[in-house]
Design a protein around this nucleic acid. Structure first.
Lengths: 238, 238
DNA sequence: ACCTGAACACCGTTCAAGT
DNA sequence: ACCTGAACACCGTTCAAGT
């Protein structure tokens, strides 16, 4: 009957909750990569035993999925995008691009989950927000599904690749920046066998000195151009 | 080089080799999924101890990478494609599509490896064979890299998704075929909240009764249309 | 109801010892 | 050089026991 709330207050500093567990998981993943997320490391960080976590989360796969969702939802947020459909699509794309860059474990995780159709709530969300804009763009109805999933696959794939470039550049040493790393990659490409890899060699120089974000958005625009070029209706004849 | 040679024949049924190990790994992955590949299960199948494998393979990650490569190389094979560049691209695409369908672990593995830039020898190979055709298509040089990686990301993403559909359909029971499974998915989509998911609901009906391979190739054609619509040169202005 | 933490059934990997 | 297989240092997960 003392103090403010007179319900027996928890003695522990903070009660365990799914939210707190997911938050700590994201921190662990950011700090130590995918291998860093362990029920033991997690329970130590939360000052409990490993078994306690199972009261809030079914298993590790669900926990990883929840971490993915938390990060993606924070990144793309509310649909409140203004401007043209193209702008709205670019906003979703850059949101994922930046999130993948900030959380290097994100893109491989998300790509793997999509490939396994473990969609959770986040894939339908992304699909929906991209698809609405494709519809607004006036794409023929028969192409909606194809165009939306092509766009989503590209965004995730390219965002992930960029994130890994960042990571590998850092791994080469704190002084090494992206440009230096990309230069190393394109030099390696230029050393490929001219008979087996003529195209890759020809393209190697394009990697050098190109802004990744710009390259990424050029890819998005390429897809938009493809969509815009579709005949106005009934593409999927049978 | 078979038994004919009279060099002291090994007493064991067959000497261990990287090739045999990779072959057994693919069998294990096909039979029991990604979790089925274990150094213990593998060594049992090969009638050795787990330690023996390390004489031919550095670690599990390399082993998985080798399994991916073996399957992909068998699928897309030699570049000897004839016909138009479009046909050659479709040949690579359907090769990967079928391989992903036959080996459900392939697409998630490959997607994850690309996202982590663990390219091995197979990603450059795919990149090269797709890129050559994009060049042959007359795409502007500034778009080669972007167009090729967009195409590769789409192919892997969509092929993986299809493979999972096959798997999940089988999991529902041997009698359940794809059409039945896709029907269940689109019914679920139609039950989504009309306020939050208007687009996904609108698209749900398209899933029903559509041939997956056809849908997949429609996506490839969409990308080709985007590439064809590019201005003839110097797209990447700065 | 929630938490504890020892215990279980596995892993990948190593390494002395064999041939 | 190649193989053996016990041993090591981990995992995710469970579960009796506590509060």
């Amino acid at each position: 009957m003392t103090t403010t709330g007179q319900r027996r207050s928890p003695r522990r500093t903070e009660a365990l909750s799914r939210e707190r567990i997911v938050g700590a998981s994201v921190e662990l993943l950011d700090a130590a990569g995918e291998g860093g997320l362990t029920f033991r490391a997690l329970s130590e960080r939360l000052a409990t035993g490993p078994g306690a976590i199972y009261h809030h989360v079914a298993n590790k796969d669900e926990l990883l999925g929840a971490a993915v969702e938390a990060v993606v939802i924070e990144a793309v947020g509310a649909p409140g995008a203004q401007g043209t459909p193209e702008d709205a699509i670019r906003a979703v794309a850059t949101g994922l691009f930046d999130a993948a860059d900030a959380h290097p474990w994100l893109a491989p995780q998300l790509a793997g989950r999509i490939a396994r159709s473990q969609w959770g709530t986040v894939v339908p969300r992304l699909f929906e927000s991209l698809g609405r804009q494709i519809r607004a763009l006036g794409a023929p109805e028969g192409a909606w599904f194809t165009a939306t999933s092509a766009l989503l696959h590209y965004i995730l794939g390219a965002a992930g690749q960029n994130a890994t470039n960042t990571e590998k550049a850092h791994a080469l040493g704190p002084d090494t920046d992206r440009a230096e790393f990309l230069d190393a990659v394109s030099t390696a490409w230029e050393r490929l066998d001219p008979d087996d890899y003529p195209f890759t060699r020809a393209v190697a120089d394009q990697m050098r000195g190109h802004d990744d974000r710009e390259q990424f958005l050029a890819g998005v625009d390429l897809m938009l151009a493809g969509i815009a070029s579709l005949p106005p209706s009934g593409g999927t004849a049978t």
